[in-house]
């Protein structure tokens, strides 16, 4: 079941951004709340799956020399689609994520998977790979977002209030320095967990 393996690889063995340390900018910037992380993750997943599929279909047509430029055009087209879609249906999220939606173009996970995987493999495997890494990224972003939101604001998914009225929010967690320190600690914890396995 190699297709299944391509899918699950992205979910644990090299889950971005913890094991495959790529795409740090959106991870740091949008994880102030769990739902922002979820939205960003799903938008990235869509672009990743579509661009992986299209690049895999076109892999024999694209000349080697201009491949990076072609990939960027393909990725950028899907990003524009996501951008317009979110503007129409998820306006609140569109405002919160701000410039990080157009910046999905330069998310190194997408270009990395295009170059390392989709440019060499058949379409089914590429879609599985895109889904796996996309969901892995979504899960990571949601977890980091939830962690920062619970400590920093005392809520979850912006709706559920977890603590009583006397809760003092640890607002450091939702500020920029908190993002770096939180992600650093997460990476360290992932290293401890996986040490026995790999």
């Amino acid at each position: 079941m190699s297709v299944w393996k391509d899918f699950t690889d992205g979910l644990w063995k090299d889950i971005p951004p913890f094991r495959l340390v790529l795409g740090l900018c959106p991870t740091l910037a949008v994880t102030t709340a769990a739902d922002n992380g979820l939205g960003m993750g799903l938008a990235t997943t869509f672009v990743l799956v579509c661009s992986n599929a299209l690049i895999s279909i076109l892999r024999k047509l694209i000349p080697k020399k201009v491949r990076i430029a072609s990939y960027i055009v393909i990725i950028a087209s899907f990003v524009v689609m996501v951008e317009l879609f979110m503007q129409a249906y998820f306006y609140r999220l569109y405002i919160i994520l701000g410039i990080f939606i157009p910046l999905i173009v330069v998310n190194c996970i997408i270009l990395g998977r295009a170059e390392a995987f989709a440019s060499k493999r058949p379409i089914l495997n590429s879609i599985a790979d895109g889904l796996g890494h996309g969901f892995g990224f979504t899960i990571s972003l949601t977890i980091v977002g939830a962690f920062r939101e619970i400590l920093g604001a005392g809520t979850l998914f912006s709706k559920i209030t977890l603590f009583g009225p006397h809760f003092m929010p640890f607002s450091f967690m939702v500020k920029p320095p908190g993002a770096f320190i939180c992600l650093g600690l997460f990476l360290g914890i992932m290293n401890i967990i996986s040490r026995g396995r790999v």
């Binding site: 500020k175 770096f180 650093g184 990476l187």
Partner: peptide, 23 residues
């Protein structure tokens, strides 16, 4: 540095402290 924090993990922590000073 403790083994599990080497590389990117400690890098991010350092960046966090620099970011804090810029704060």
């Amino acid at each position: 540095i403790p083994d599990f924090m080497k590389g990117t993990a400690i890098g991010l922590l350092t960046a966090g402290l620099i970011s804090l000073s810029f704060f």
